[in-house]
Amino acid sequence: MDEGRFETFYRHTAGSLWSYLFRLTGDEATADDLLQKAYFRFLRANPAVASEEHSRRWLFRTATNLAFDHFRETKRERARIEQGMREATTAFESHDALRHDMMRTFEQLKPRERALLWLAHVEEADHEDIGEALGVKPKSVKVLLFRARKRLAELLTKKGLAP
């Protein structure tokens, strides 16, 4: 892949990938770091013949793996991550109370639940793609997604935000 093609692909995908990583980690610096790592891996894999859609799926899968590796590596630093989430929500709070509430609600879900909901609802990925990204069988995705949605609904009901 040449630089021009990469730049076009980056401009098409980086925004949504960063949003995904930021919602997953709750930390801007971590999202930046994981975003760059995902593109480094993408360029190293050199998917010259793959379609943009295929490359995009590959990128989200890689980013998800990187995020989960990051969660595993920083397991002992969970308190620091949660602090990061709180800081992120505080940053949003200064902007908008609604955003703050949304970030706080989302952070109460487990990382895998966040990834499932984002990939299904925002990226509109099918169960097979989600399964590939999270390393689980498509059949399990159905169950996990159902649970994640239920959990989100419970949180929204508790906060009085349910539709």
Binding site: A120, V122, K150
Partner: peptide, 15 residues
């Protein structure tokens, strides 16, 4: 469950 989560997720994504 999908219908219950979707409106909130859509608003959250538009953030």
């Amino acid at each position: 469950a999908a219908a219950a989560a979707a409106p909130w997720m859509n608003r959250f994504a538009r953030m």
